[in-house]
């Protein structure tokens, strides 16, 4: 735990010094959210149509901006092979993964909340947003997303076509999580509660644990030769 905290602190300090991830990500979220909202308003959709598509829009935007952010999560560690110095100092690949997942998860949740707020303000859907329940869905989805992203960005980093290969590797395995996010969010926004008989209400938290476990056990194999 101590090492995880030290590594997490390192990421925060690195971000404070450079501002690479946070500033660029926030700008990107603002731009994407605003462009999407303006584009939809131009289409002059009926309020019912906005209500029905709102959940899908939120998650599509998250997918897009999440990929652009998470491809850079390991940049500072892989550049100059700094992660090797961490390993030689006694940190394990598991600790490195968990600290990155924590940092990336918090960042992505914050960006997701920002995009949600922008879309809600501009598109003004008629339903109440059910913030707490939506937050629970988001935590599960972000946990899956960041676990898979860390594994696959480390793989793509060493390839010849890093920026292009990363989304190609990530999106197919993310489909089930995406289905789950869409299904539960639509239920929540349109019916104002979860359908407790829905497969995804149980599956999403289980998936979050499974992908986190996969990340913890497989991360060593993607960063070490």
């Amino acid at each position: 735990m101590r090492a995880i905290f030290i590594l997490f602190q390192k990421d925060l300090i690195h971000e404070r010094n450079s501002g690479e991830l946070i500033l660029v990500s926030v700008t990107l979220c603002l731009l994407l959210g605003t462009l999407t909202a303006f584009g939809l308003r131009e289409a002059v959709l009926a309020p019912e149509a906005i209500d029905r598509t709102f959940g899908t829009l939120v998650w599509l935007l998250f997918l897009f901006s999440g990929m652009l952010v998470s491809v850079r999560l390991l940049d500072s560690d892989l550049r100059d092979s700094a992660y090797q110095a961490l390993l030689l100092s006694g940190a394990s690949p598991t600790q490195l993964f968990l600290s990155k997942a924590l940092f990336g998860g918090i960042l992505l949740l914050a960006l997701h909340a920002l995009q949600f707020a922008i879309l809600y303000i501009f598109l003004q859907p008629t339903f109440s947003p059910q913030i707490l329940l939506f937050f629970l869905i988001s935590v599960c989805v972000v946990c899956c997303f960041v676990s898979l992203s860390l594994l696959l960005s480390a793989i793509a980093e060493h390839s010849r076509l890093k920026a292009v290969l990363f989304p190609i590797l990530l999106l197919p395995v993310l489909f089930p999580v995406f289905f789950g996010a869409l299904s539960t969010t639509q239920d929540l926004f349109l019916n104002q509660q979860f359908d407790l008989t829905s497969f995804w209400v149980e599956a999403l938290p289980a998936l979050a644990l499974v992908y986190l476990g996969l990340g913890v056990s497989l991360f060593e194999y993607v960063i070490l030769e």
């Binding site: 010094n17 500072s76 560690d77 092979s81 700094a82 110095a85």
Partner: peptide
Amino acid sequence: QRPFSGFGYLGHELLLYRGLTVHQ
């Protein structure tokens, strides 16, 4: 299984974080 903490290693790459100060 993995590197031991009692090792000091200097390679061709820096093994340092360019975004942190020397002290950090």
